[in-house]
Nucleic acid binder design. Structure first.
Lengths: 199, 199
DNA sequence: AGTCTAGTTGACCGATCGGTAAACACAAGG
DNA sequence: CCTTGTGTTTACCGATCGGTCAACTAGACT
């Protein structure tokens, strides 16, 4: 599963073969099929583990650690940036958001895989919403804020940022686009103060 | 190339085979290789055409037609929504943003394809920026607005929106997330008016 | 008529795909 | 000692992958 993770994240579902996974893992193909019924299940299981780790190591610490929504967003962005940088250093490729990428690639081919990825995206969105609800409770956001809607926007923008980062194969893209997240979630600055504010 | 477009947009680069393309086009494989040196070049050429059409039929009309940035954004979103809906009706699958999807999928494998897609994304960003510059010229945005940066954010969010739409295979996702675009580009409403504003 | 060339065709290439199955190793339990 | 269950190994399956090639067709030009 570690081999599967490395390969699927840095390449893509379709372009990763069972043979490559097994070679990397130092395992014979037959052994693999003793534990997993097929490629699809292997990948689903692998990303299940990845999500669990992502929630425990990125989502929870960043979104509950610092006080204040602004600090939490920053912590979240930095944690994502660190993870992407680490992966790029280790594997030579910047993965972007695996759940989003897989959902896009297999969305029109493998319903089970797509549903699994959608489930993870939903879970991330729920974490975002919890952070927004906490901000509402602390008076950082107006009480009438539609946190579900805002969390939805947050996830969409985050996916877009990671898509751009993967397309450019550059982790700094995340930092470059992160201000958009602050603008979207905390309200854009008044037009008068907008120019170059984030530099 | 029409067959290539349909298949690549609704499936993915890796999962579309030369055989499938030729079968759909009613052409023998050998004939294809008389005109294109390989799959990569075929797809690049196909998406070149697609971008040209996209610019002429979506970008230009939407971003120059209506008066006012808000109206232009709305027109752009509606045009994209219409295109996605049409594709879904015709092919049974919602393609999302082909340039983004291809850039993501092939970004770690086919440098030429990735560069081509990046070029198209850059071109789209330039169109966005032109629309923002026009808004600045009309006083709709502050003169000090960093339009390049804002166009960058615009593209990232748009890619995220289309990624979500493809993941969910639902064109309405675009309309659901479109308000985020208005918030990001025109400035979020004051917190007091934020709740449910867009419903 | 003869030549040339753009394009078509179908057979074929080696490689790889995901997946299967039978033979085998081996430790645990009787 | 013998069975049983858990894995491992290896050879193999048909299908498909992207790509090649030589033979062929047919219209244009001389």
């Amino acid at each position: 599963m570690d081999a599967t993770r490395s390969l699927v994240l840095t390449r893509s579902y379709g372009s990763v073969g069972i043979a490559g996974i097994c070679e990397r893992a130092g395992v014979r193909r037959g052994s693999l099929y003793h534990f997993f019924p097929g490629k699809e299940d292997l990948v689903i299981a692998t990303l299940e583990v990845l999500y669990t780790e992502f929630e425990a190591e990125v989502l929870q610490p960043a979104l509950r650690g610092p006080a204040g929504l602004r600090g939490r967003i920053t912590a979240f962005v930095n944690a994502v940036h660190a993870f992407q940088t680490r992966m790029q250093a280790a594997e030579g490729r910047l993965p972007g958001c695996p759940f989003g990428s897989l959902a896009v690639e297999t969305g029109t081919q493998s319903p089970r895989l797509r549903e699994a990825m959608q489930g993870h995206l939903d879970a991330i969105r729920a974490q975002f919403r919890a952070a927004l609800d906490a901000a509402v409770a602390h008076g950082e956001l107006d009480a009438r804020t539609d946190t579900a809607r805002l969390a939805d926007h947050w996830l969409a923008l985050m996916e877009g940022i990671l898509l751009m980062a993967r397309a450019e194969q550059d982790a700094d893209t995340i930092l470059r686009l992160a201000p958009a997240l602050q603008d979207l979630l905390l309200g854009a600055p008044a037009p008068e103060r907008r120019a170059n504010e984030h530099r």
